[in-house]
Design a protein around this nucleic acid. Structure first.
Lengths: 124, 124
DNA sequence: GTTACTAGTTACCTTAATGAAACTATTATG
DNA sequence: CATAATAGTTTCATTAAGGTAACTAGTAAC
């Protein structure tokens, strides 16, 4: 296991410390939609993404949940929200550089999900 | 984006497909405790892990939740449960080989959590 | 003036998730 | 006989999560 420095001394990084780090991640990224939204936005950094577009393309999410989750992600500096002076007004959402740091997480989840589906299918 | 074969033709893997895979992962691994438990067990494949030990070392989990989550993980073939004929009886839990396939997921979450904590601290 | 689009918000409701504490059962120790 | 350890289960309660549908507000097209 890795060594880390704390309280001025080197000591063994114990499992507890790893679990606490994971708890931090899950507090910020956990729940049904946050990682989905981040993945969606990260896949489309070359496009302007509006609220309604996300609601249409992220299957199953309601306006209420989308609105709430977007606020949470913005507070944690993972996405930005920009009102555009169009008529009717539109709001452009995009991932921040920091938000892009979540990509390895969503990538492992996508890969695991694909593999899991294969495993389920071949077990029938 | 990667190409995948479906319906006998090659077509572009769209975001929807990635999101569906992630949805599958979250359905199996989501929630407050499952990834914590898997990480804990994966870190201790060289030890025998009993119910009470997990309850003591996974901070904040109750007997009820631990019991329920362990059942879910067992159903999905991610862990095994073995009753040992000791007095008092003990039950040994361990990750399966398939359960170990979740390691990349927990690893990225641990790393992201460590990085996130740093970022929070330096932003004060 | 009615319909439709944008981007949400609000109220109401149901279900899922979680927790605390008490409890069962077995066996051993003092 | 009381205490303590194992591995949970059960009951009761609360909180969090999530859904539906109606609604606001501004603007434009028909």
């Amino acid at each position: 296991m890795a060594k880390i420095k704390r309280d001025g001394v080197l000591r063994e990084a114990n499992c507890t410390e790893e679990l606490l780090a994971m708890r931090d991640s899950l507090d910020v990224l956990g729940g049904k939609w946050k990682l989905m939204i981040l993945r969606f936005l990260t896949n489309r950094t070359h496009q302007v993404i509006h609220f309604k577009k996300m609601q249409r393309e992220i299957e199953g999410i309601s306006a209420k949940m989308l609105s709430k989750e977007l606020k949470d992600l913005e507070v944690n500096l993972l996405i930005t929200r920009k009102v555009q002076d169009t008529k009717p007004i539109t709001v452009a959402y995009s991932v921040t550089e920091y938000g892009k740091s979540v990509l390895p997480v969503t990538e492992t989840l996508v890969q695991w999900g694909l593999n899991h589906r294969e495993k389920i299918i071949e077990s029938i």
